[in-house]
Write a protein that binds this DNA or RNA. Structure first.
Lengths: 170, 170
DNA sequence: TTGGAAAATGAGTCTCGACTCATTATCGTA
DNA sequence: TACGATAATGAGTCGAGACTCATTTTCCAA
């Protein structure tokens, strides 16, 4: 790949991440091109359809989240991760919006990272033993959706998470 | 209002409820008109914009939910309501989709009904005393969103709700 | 029964956004 | 440097869906 093409590809991904984070997946490709400083045709050369572009940034975001999760651990790693993710949900609409576009590999990596955090929390006794990964992911996703659509303030978020944490511990 | 106008208004509302439940708020007004058996112009005569139509059915749905909640009560009324609502979330996309369209009065009636259920559950000791209405609503909304976008099966739903119920009780 | 107001009709307008492609510009190699 | 391959450009096409309005139909009160 030529150097200019490589450079533009990066610019487009960065721009797309910002635009979709701000306006959700319904933002126009035109807007992405404008922010990236390239013509609309260039965006479509790199990503033949809008879905391809969405999939690409979703993949990046999920990979970043998995990485982030991997740096956490110990008794309350899972709790920290929950709090962090839910707190960002409103700002990063993208992850939350994208029920349609799926990136199996990236999702499963995140899934594993969360499983790891869960194992550690259970070993430390912060989370009871019969809780399994699927419901933890379900709760995480639900809370992110809820936070995004509900516009929670910090206190409500904390109170809501407190209930869930109590449920995981009880 | 003339009799035929009244009749068509009802037909349109019923059709809209079904169409938006099936396809979400992005379904076209044309589709609603077709199912209602009226011309597109008739829909716009009754509801000048698509948002007006969405607001109208949202109002009906919320009123129905509030009514439904009012018939429940006792120690596990809140729990039954949660299970019922989350179970329907995937089928009734409409309520869940509609972050944008708001119908304050209808929402606050639902809010009150849930508050009533919460009071009774707390009186019965099924839910601990320091839990408040806002986080209960937040959890309810989150779980509906999660169930819709995640496509949960019955077991996952039950396991997820079990964690939340434990958190409310603990 | 009938006159006119209210309502319904549906082809047409308008906007918006995804996507195309002929043309022009840029890169990297020989 | 020169040249062909690769990439960028952006005006234009296309389809979809919200909304309009001149015309026709239906209702109902006198």
């Amino acid at each position: 790949m030529r150097a200019d093409a490589q450079r533009n590809r990066e610019r487009i991904l960065d721009a797309a991440e910002e635009v979709f984070a701000r306006c959700g997946a319904s933002a126009s490709t035109e807007e992405v091109a404008r922010l990236a400083g390239v013509a609309i045709g260039t965006v479509f050369r790199h990503f033949p359809t809008k879905d391809d572009l969405l999939a690409a940034i979703l993949k990046r975001l999920l990979a970043r989240l998995a990485e982030d999760a991997a740096t956490l651990g110990g008794a309350d790693g899972l709790h920290v991760f929950f709090r962090r993710l839910v707190g960002q949900a409103a700002a990063k609409r993208t992850v939350v919006d994208l029920a349609g576009v799926s990136v199996p590999a990236a999702v499963s990596r995140l899934d594993e990272a969360v499983g790891e955090l869960l194992d550690q929390a259970q070993a430390a006794g912060t989370v009871r033993g019969d809780v399994r990964r699927p419901e933890v992911m379900a709760l995480l996703v639900s809370l992110c959706q809820g936070a995004l659509h509900g516009g929670w303030d910090v206190e409500l978020q904390e109170r809501t998470l407190a209930v869930v944490f109590a449920g995981l511990a009880a």
